[in-house]
Nucleic acid binder design. Structure first.
Lengths: 94, 94
DNA sequence: ATTAATTATAGCACAAATGCTATAATTAAT
DNA sequence: ATTAATTATAGCATTTGTGCTATAATTAAT
C-alpha cells in the first residue's frame, strides 16, 4: 500500500499513516455535499448516530474512515454512494 | 448508526460491530471486479502492497475496511472508485 | 489421484477508528 | 459588539483494521 506518513507538526500530534490525498479529497467532497444538502455537522451526527467529533474529524481529514461509516454518511445525506466518490485523484494514485 | 452485531457462531470468534449488508455487498462487488479483471488475491496483494490476509478478510466480509484501503484496491484493479460502489442496498439502509 | 495454486483462517502486535465528554475556535445572527 | 450556533480539538477507553506468519481448506492442473 502506498502509505504516506502524516508527520506531526506540533508536539503531541499523532502520527497517522494513510493516503493523504484520497482522504483529503473525500473530506472535501463530503463537506461539499453536506452543505449542498443543507445539513450542519450536528444534524448529520444526530441523524446518523455518528458522533459529532467523528464528523468533524472526517471533514478535517484527520482520520481514515471505515466503509460502514461511509455507508451511514451516504444514507444520512440521501445521496447515492458513488456520489461521495465523485472526484479525481492524481494519476499516480489511480 | 444502524449497527448490526455480528454474533460469534463459534466459541472464540470476535464480536464485530458494523453494517453487515453493506460490507457484504462490497465484498461481493470487489470479488466480482477482481475476477473480471483477471487478478488472483495474491496478485492484488502484491501489486497493492496490502497483505494477502487482508484481501481475503475483505472478500469474506470479516472486516470493515478503511477508505485508504478502498482507494488502493480501486487503483490496483484499475477501476474508477465509484465502480466499487455500484450495487444496491436495501431501502432501509439507503 | 497427486500436486500445485488459490483462497480462507488464525493469532499476535501495533496503529488507528470511534464514541464520549469537554473545551476552544470560528462563524453567523442579532 | 454580544450572543448564539457551528465547527474544530483534545484526551481517554474500547474496539477494530492491518501486517505478519503460518496453516488449513478449497479449487484447478496435470
Amino acid at each position: 500500500m502506498k502509505l504516506s506518513a502524516m508527520i506531526p507538526k506540533q508536539k503531541g500530534d499523532r502520527i497517522l499513516i494513510f493516503d493523504e490525498e484520497g482522504i483529503k479529497s473525500f473530506a472535501i467532497q463530503l463537506q461539499k455535499i453536506r452543505i449542498k444538502e443543507g445539513f450542519s455537522q450536528s444534524q448529520i451526527a444526530f441523524e446518523s448516530g455518528l458522533s459529532l467529533s467523528q464528523i468533524a474529524r472526517i471533514e478535517t481529514a484527520r482520520i481514515n474512515p471505515t466503509l460502514s461509516t461511509i455507508f451511514v454518511l451516504a444514507w444520512t445525506l440521501n445521496v447515492p454512494l458513488p456520489d461521495l466518490f465523485n472526484f479525481q485523484l492524481s494519476p499516480k494514485e489511480r
